[in-house]
Design a protein around this nucleic acid. Sequence first.
DNA 1: CGTCGGCTTTCACGCTTTTTTCACCGGTAG
DNA 2: CTACCGGTGAAAAAAGCGTGAAAGCCGACG
Lengths: 123, 123
Amino acid sequence: MAAFPESPEVPGVLYAGELEIRPDEGLVLATGRALTLSVREFELLVAMARRVGAIITREELYRTVWGSELRLGDRSVDVYVSKLRSKLEVALPDRRFIHTHPGFGYRFQPELSRDVHIEHAGG
Amino acid sequence: MAAFPESPEVPGVLYAGELEIRPDEGLVLATGRALTLSVREFELLVAMARRVGAIITREELYRTVWGSELRLGDRSVDVYVSKLRSKLEVALPDRRFIHTHPGFGYRFQPELSRDVHIEHAGG
DNA sequence: CGTCGGCTTTCACGCTTTTTTCACCGGTAG
DNA sequence: CTACCGGTGAAAAAAGCGTGAAAGCCGACG
């Protein structure tokens, strides 16, 4: 009797690691608990989660989420990736979801954090 | 396996935390005591309680409770959420039921209030 | 008929949260 | 060192929301 499904059961719902994303409801669950995301954060997450494993450029993300062309020098995507990362890390500390590919873009894929080990006092 | 609420005993009756809602009777009990709600308040509560855990947009709530399309700038839903919250808080001070998701809508889910802790004397 | 009282609708103000924008910083490659 | 890239804190601007209160409705009552 699992508390939540490990693999897709409900159509339209996205699963990634212990994340459950319901695009239609604007809802994200982390291990069953609702995350509080803003509209931009949520749509950015959805845009990435729909393309797990692929590198997506900032231009494309901006087009998908903001609905217009990314202007030169606009760092909005970076800023929101940062916000999203920090909320995901609070919710699921031992997972990394958003990976940076310098010069290309971002890749969404649930992976174990590198430092799952216990931080020893003093380093 | 149907997903059942806490302790369903009577069919059609909704349970949420220490709330018992009887849609057919227009009755709401909080820890056994009857709440006095207006028609709008009651139907709004029912509409939300039927979708525990989901984020519901104002548009949908308005459609369900008022029976027509929400007009631009109409704040009726907000106003009634406010009224409902204040009555629920009087009845059950250490629970929060209606959660706001800015830009999305409202989510109904019984949760412990953040400050259940004892307020420091003199604070 | 006029008044009263409860419910609903509408309005407006101020506060909160989100979004946008800016700036600085560290890392890295040439 | 210089140039480029990306992370992120924070200020500024914009959008969203909570809520008291005024105004409108309507049935009950004298």
